[in-house]
């Protein structure tokens, strides 16, 4: 007896977003990245096309990340004191699809770097690597509002992915994206209605921006509330496929940022004998967090540990194998 394969008929698909721009499009990237475009739930190729594979962006800081656990710092080596060298190593040695440059040094408590200093770092990273870039501020809205505009202007035409626009602070990033031809991360606190609302607000500023939005649904580390993010993502993706155009964006998650501050990512095996070797455990925590989020539809994973990146990329290879019947 032949089983009648169950294929859901979806009304719509996720928007496809292009990141980065080559010289043909007014940028200097040697390659661009396409994300999104899914016409099925994660990895169910049997019912709809998944034209683009999920990608991994590796995180690079403008200052030495002193607080990162020793396992992580030693895995990366001494490049962490030089953003351009660090980015280059991530691309050339670790196969990063993108670089996520975070301007932590602009934080008023961590050096209060000026916009000019930030621009110099951005330029050095842009010339060190040819992949598309994600650019994050320091995370403090007041300061970020003063640096994101100038950063966007200095890289006009590169089609950076600029982070982050939030419900109560989206205008400056959105106008910078509009004016200087970049894309934008719309971040909402694990709330599908806020995610939608924010996209509506951004589209009211500029309709074409709708095709340049990536949703950050807010994630958490494995063991720290990740299941809430997982379910919000499943709902958002299902909404996108069911025809909700304001949810039909690719999704991005800051995996490394959540994982590497947690106890599992640093406590030594001598302090916590039941948890196993810390170097491997911490790496595995980041990799497994990413692996879980992939199953809910994550398109861009921002990560830190080279081996975790390698494992996730291999796992994506496996998941992208055609499984149609």
């Amino acid at each position: 007896m032949a089983v009648e394969i169950n294929k859901e008929k979806y009304r719509s698909q996720v928007r496809e977003v292009v990141l980065g721009a080559t010289s043909a499009d007014g940028g200097t990237r040697t390659s661009t990245i396409k994300v999104g475009g899914e016409a099925s739930l994660p990895f169910l190729q049997f019912e709809g096309a998944i034209p683009n594979r999920p990608v991994v962006a590796m995180e690079v800081w403008d200052i030495v990340p002193e607080d990162w656990p020793a396992n992580l710092k030693s895995a990366l080596g001494d490049v962490i004191s030089d953003p351009a060298a660090w980015a280059k190593k991530c691309v050339e040695e670790y196969g990063a699809d993108m670089i996520a440059l975070r301007f932590k040094g602009a934080d008023p408590d961590l050096g209060d770097k000026s916009a000019e200093d930030c621009i110099a770092v951005l330029k050095s990273v842009l010339s060190a690597v040819g992949v598309p870039l994600i650019v994050y501020g320091c995370g403090k809205a007041d300061k970020d509002n003063t640096i994101m505009g100038p950063l966007a202007e200095s890289a006009e035409g590169e089609n950076l992915l600029l982070g982050v626009a939030e419900q109560d602070n989206y205008k400056s990033v959105a106008s910078a994206a509009m004016a200087y031809k970049h894309s934008i991360i719309a971040q909402s606190p694990i709330d599908i209605n806020i995610a939608k609302q924010l996209n509506i607000l951004i589209s009211e500023m500029s309709t074409p921006l709708l095709d340049r939005i990536v949703i950050d649904p807010t994630i958490a580390a494995l063991g720290y509330g990740i299941e809430y993010s997982y379910s919000i993502m499943e709902r958002a993706r299902f909404g996108a496929l069911s025809g909700d155009r304001m949810l039909a964006m690719p999704m991005i998650g800051n995996v490394g940022n959540e994982v590497w501050v947690k106890k599992e990512a640093s406590v030594s095996v001598s302090e916590q004998p039941g948890w196993g070797d810390e170097a491997e455990r911490s790496m595995a925590w980041e990799a497994a967090t990413a692996a879980a989020l992939l199953q809910a539809g994550m398109d861009i994973l921002v990560m830190r540990h080279p081996r975790a990146v390698e494992l996730v990329k291999k796992s994506i290879d496996d998941l992208m194998q055609d499984n149609s019947y």
Binding site: L222, G223, E264, G274, W275, G276, D277, E278, E280, R281, A284, W285, A287, A288, T289, A291, A292, L294, Q295, L311, V312, K314, S315, D318, L319
Partner: peptide, 27 residues
């Protein structure tokens, strides 16, 4: 570990695996 994470997420009732490493089974 990554394969197991995917299979566990998608409707597997019994997952048969090999590793006995605590650092991999804990996540």
């Amino acid at each position: 570990l990554l394969q197991a994470t995917a299979l566990l997420s998608k409707f597997t009732s019994v997952l048969v695996m090999k590793t006995v490493k605590k650092e991999l089974l804990l996540p």
